[in-house]
Structure formats: C-alpha cells, structure tokens
C-alpha cells in the first residue's frame, strides 16, 4: 500500500498552473527524487504536500487519509529540510535541535539529542558551537537531526545537495539511504541527476508543472537519465 499519494493534484495562481494533474504514489521506505528546471513545479509539489499552500484541485493522501481535510497529520508525520538551512545562528547545534524538537512536542534529554546529531553525522566537537560557525553541510546535518528526532514517516527535501561539497553530498546521500532503510520515506526535489540515480528508487521529471516521466532508478544509468532529462525539459 502506498504511504503517500497525489491524485490529480493541481495548483493554479490566477490563470497560471504551477502544478497540473500530478499523480504519483510513494511507498514506505522509498526515496523519490523529482527532477526539473527552476519553476518546473518541484517546490510547489513540496509546498502542497507540507500544507504550506492549498491545492486548487486534487487530493494528497497519507495512508489513504486526505491531508487537506486532516492537516494535523502533516505536522505529526512529515519533516522538512529546506534548500538552504540557516536555523538560528545565535544558538548552538544542540540548542537548535532541542528547540525544533520541542516545537514538534518532543522533549529529549541531552544525551538523546547528542545521539540524534551523531546519527545525522555531525561531529561531536561541533554540537556546542554556535551555528554561525557551521558550514552549509554541518547546518544540513542539524536539519537532518531535527527530522530524525521528529521520527517523521516522510521527509521532504528541497534541493538538499545544492551548494554542498562532494564529501558533504556523499555524507548526505549515505544518511538518506540509512533513513530509508529504517523505513523513512524521502521525497526530494533536486537538480542533481547523478545523485538522484545513486540514491532514489523512483525518479520523476517535471516540466512546466507536469510530471512527464517517472522512472525506476534501477532501470537507468546516470548518463541515460541525463540524456532523457535534457530531451524532456
């Protein structure tokens, strides 16, 4: 059974469609990567799934429950990692994690918070440093720790590898795979074709608000995907 489904999902701003009749289905523990140019509708899809905007038409189902009618499920089961993670520079990594976890209703002991940060791959020496001293990759890891600490069923990531160096990207991909292996579903909007092939189970390609291709990553190489992507957009 699908964990997450979009059925004829559309979002219209005045006369312009940002997303048109999206249909997709994602299973538990699956990593779904959505490719497309800027303005193709990737972020709109994430915004709709997370309830930041309301759909003009269609449905979003989580475990067959309509999320538009039950928005409280979104906060409970979904987590979000933005493209650029800033969090709060005047707080340390562990303080940021503690704060965002508390907002989600989770009050963890210090050692639990440390474990989450470790799980996200943030070295322990950085836990108590102010976020202003963090690199982009380190901030990304705190955001992952926040998602882990939330024990979210589904994590939405908006271009998470954008601006990361190869090592940080590799770390990130490893963590994503680990999370998926543990049953977390990941929905990722990205421009990174090679990592999409590397990490995803399913890859979607969007153009002008329409999902034009949906590919099993096992059936395609990075080069072939790049070719298909360039032909599609």
């Amino acid at each position: 059974m699908s964990l997450l489904q979009a059925i004829e999902l559309s979002k219209q701003y005045n006369d312009v469609y940002a997303l048109r009749n999206l249909n997709l289905s994602i299973n538990k523990g699956e990593i779904y990567c959505l490719l497309g140019q800027n303005g193709a509708g990737k972020t709109t899809t994430i915004n709709l799934m997370l309830g930041f905007v309301k759909p003009s038409a269609g449905k979003i189902l989580f475990n067959n429950i309509d999320l538009v009618e039950n928005p409280s499920l979104i906060n409970k089961h979904f987590a979000y990692i933005p493209e650029v993670v800033h969090l709060y520079g005047s707080l340390t990594g562990i303080e940021n994690l503690e704060f965002f976890s508390k907002i989600a209703g989770n009050h963890y002991a210090k050692n639990e918070l440390v474990n989450f940060l470790n799980e996200a791959g943030l070295q322990e020496s950085a836990h108590h440093k102010l976020m202003t001293s963090y690199s982009k990759g380190m901030r990304q890891k705190v955001a992952i720790a926040i998602a882990i600490a939330k024990r979210a069923d589904c994590i939405f990531m908006d271009e998470p590898t954008s601006g990361l160096d190869p090592k940080a990207t590799n770390d990130f991909i490893t963590i994503c795979k680990k999370l998926a292996k543990n049953g977390t579903t990941i929905f990722m909007a990205t421009h990174d074709i090679f990592n999409a092939v590397n990490v995803a189970n399913t890859i979607g390609i969007m153009r002008e608000g329409i999902l034009v291709n949906s590919i099993d990553s096992k059936s395609i190489t990075a080069t072939a995907l790049e070719k298909l992507y360039l032909e599609t957009i």
């Binding site: 997370l50 930041f52 906060n75 979000y80 990692i81 933005p82 969090l87 709060y88 989600a104």
Partner: peptide, 13 residues
C-alpha cells in the same frame, strides 16, 4: 530570509 519559517511550520509552530 533564513528559511526557518517553513521549518517552524512543518514542526507544528
């Protein structure tokens, strides 16, 4: 500006 608003909202704030 720091992209925290969506994160806060997704956490339930």
């Amino acid at each position: 500006e720091q992209n925290n608003i969506k994160l806060l909202k997704s956490q339930g704030a």
